[in-house]
Design a protein around this nucleic acid. Structure first.
Lengths: 143, 143
DNA sequence: TGTCCTTAGGTGCAGCTTGCCTATAGGTGC
DNA sequence: GCACCTATAGGCAAGCTGCACCTAAGGACA
């Protein structure tokens, strides 16, 4: 495991996540590693768009940096894998802390999702009320 | 209106938002201005926590900067208001573009909310499957 | 041999955002 | 005079992002 660099290294996602969401790269990578068992950067990069839940493309650099960040925090571990052909691969897999971290992410995203849909509902009802108020204040059939 | 500064000044929230979510300060401020009709920084700061949908506190500096950013982009307009007592207030109100921007934000947040809850469901079903696999592989009554 | 493509894993850097701290300035209470 | 409240805002160090670039191994092709 690599040594800690981030000032938020030991914070739970709830404390740190809203500080920096890492564009949701982190939970997606954790989930992919959970599904695949283990994988490496180049492979993950190829499938990120299938797993990502935002339309935004995920940068290759962001992917590698997030993997390093996750390892700094003990959520994944890595080791080199050598093949007869092609360059070596750094294979990552989840640690038990990483499993928990993914669950924390899921809880956080669940809360955020609910809060967001509540907010959207409020915005849309405000929009409806606004239209009604305008129509009522005008007290005229049409315009 | 102030002159544009941001390189993403004219982009819709869908294009720019995932690049920088501004910690969701922007849609909250737009919504507050819509509800209140008009308001000023210090007043908004006092009520932000009631309207914000993330637990994260919103920085005073972030609030003022976001207001300026919104004005740079033509989503709000401002004017000074002087009172017999206390310092002058810069009063902000929504423009028609600002109204549309809030609706775009609502659409974006709605999509994001749905994507997030789908992701959460997938994570949780993966978690269940994992437990089943482990239990099945063990083929033992307990522990 | 030289060049180019694919796989694979990074680094460097400019530009932008964030959070904390500080400045400014009018007014009130003691 | 001094502290405190209202009100807006700037400075700055840290951190994050996106793009460009680099290294290196192997294979294809001429």
């Amino acid at each position: 495991m690599r040594s800690a660099r981030s000032p938020h290294a030991s914070e739970p996602p709830g404390a740190c996540a809203m500080r920096n969401l890492y564009r949701f790269v982190e939970p997606v990578i954790l989930y992919m590693l959970k599904c695949k068992g283990h994988s490496y950067g180049y492979d993950l990069a190829g499938e990120l768009s299938r797993y990502a839940f935002t339309g935004a493309a995920i940068e290759k650099a962001a992917l590698y940096r997030t993997l390093r960040h996750l390892e700094d925090n003990g959520f994944v571990v890595s080791g080199w894998e050598f093949h007869a052909t092609g360059p070596a691969r750094r294979i990552y897999s989840l640690t038990p802390q990483g499993e928990r971290h993914l669950e924390e992410w899921a809880a956080l995203l669940n809360d955020l999702s609910r809060s967001m849909s509540r907010f959207v509902a409020r915005v849309r009802s405000a929009h409806e009320n606004h239209k009604e108020v305008k129509a009522g204040a005008a007290a005229l059939p049409a315009r």
